[in-house]
Amino acid sequence: MRAFELESVEAIDQAVSHRRVHDGEAFIAGGTTLLDLVKLDVMQPEKVVDVSRLPLKRIETLEDGRLKVGALVSNTELAKHEIVMRDYPVLSEALLSGASTGLRNMASTGGNVMQRTRCPYFRDPAMPCNKREPGTGCSAIEGINRNHAVLGTSEHCIATHPSDMCVGMVAAGATLVLEGPDGQREVAFEDYHLLPGDSPEREHDLKPGELITHVILDAPRSGGQHYLKLRDRASYEFALASCAAIVNLDGDNISEVRLALGGVATKPWRADAAEAVLKGQPATQENFEQAAEAAFNDAVAYSHNGFKITLGKQAIVRALRDATAAARG
C-alpha cells in the first residue's frame, strides 16, 4: 500500500479545518472502503485524517420525533438499535443485508454514505475509467457490464451505487448534516448523491473540507416496511437489484408509499414514478406490476445487464407484497 501521512483529530473543527489547507486528504472512519481502494491505488491520499475518535457515536431522538444518527455509529449498532429495529425496520434490514458481520462492525454510517462503486474497471488502475480518471473513457459501456446500472446512467459512466443502507435511508427519508470550514448545512439525503452526467468523478454534494457529522432520519412513517435484496449468492454479496418499500393502507387502498431501489441505478434511487402509480389505488398484484413497469420506463440496458430490468421489477413487486402484508399486521 502506498505511503501516507496520518493525522488524528479529536474535535470536529479540527477535522474540518484540516482539509481546508490541503487537497489530497481523505478522512478515515472504519477504513473498509478507503484502505481497500488505497491498496488498489485507486485512491491516492497523501494524508489520511483519522476521524474515528470524534464524538459522533450517538443515536438520539429529537423533539420533533426524528432520529439523529452520528456519522461514526457503526452499521451493526445502527441496524440493531432498538428504535431503528422498531420504527425503521426497512433500514435495519437493509444494513443487515450488507457486507458481513465483521465488516458491519467496522463500517460507519458516514463511510457507508461515501462508499465507492464496485465497478471492476474503476477498481483497476490499468483500465480507462471516467470516474477514476476523467476523460479516459468508460471501459464498462462496451465491456463486461453485467453488474452495472440501468437507471440514471450517462454515456460517460454506468456504475452502480453499491450501498444497501442508503436505499433504506432514501425510503425512510433523511437529511444529512455537513460541517465545513464555512459552518454547518443540511442536504436532503435524496439530493446528496449525484447522477454521473458528464462528470462521473463528482459523486456527491460534499464540498472540499466538509465532514458528514450526522444523518437525521425523518420521523417514523407508520405502515409496513420491507427491504428485499436479490444477488448472486444469498449473503456477503452486493445487490443485483434491491427494493426498500414502505406501505400505508387505508382499508384496501394504498394511502402512502415510499419506494427506493438499489443495485440497478447510479445512485440510491427513489422510484417516484412507481409511487405515483400506487397512491390511492388498491394494493393488488396488478397494481404492483404496473408500478414496477413505471419504475423502469426510462431504463437503458447494456450488453450484459438487461436481466436487471426484469429482476428489478420483480424486486419491487415482491417488496410491495411483503410490505403490504406487514401493513395489514
Binding site: 496520518l6 488524528s8 478515515i28 472504519g30 477504513g31 473498509t32 484502505l35 481497500d36 489520511v48 483519522d50 474515528s52 451493526t76 457486507a99 458481513s100 458481520t101 465483521g102 465488516l103 462492525n105 467496522m106
Partner: peptide, 24 residues
C-alpha cells in the same frame, strides 16, 4: 475484506484486520 481469514477481535467484536490501520 473479501474472505474473513484475517478476522480478530477488537474490543470484543469480530473485525477484518486487513482493512484496519494499526495506529488507530
Amino acid at each position: 475484506g473479501q474472505c474473513g481469514a484475517c478476522t480478530v477481535h477488537v474490543n470484543g467484536r469480530s473485525v477484518n484486520s486487513c482493512l484496519m490501520l494499526a495506529c488507530l
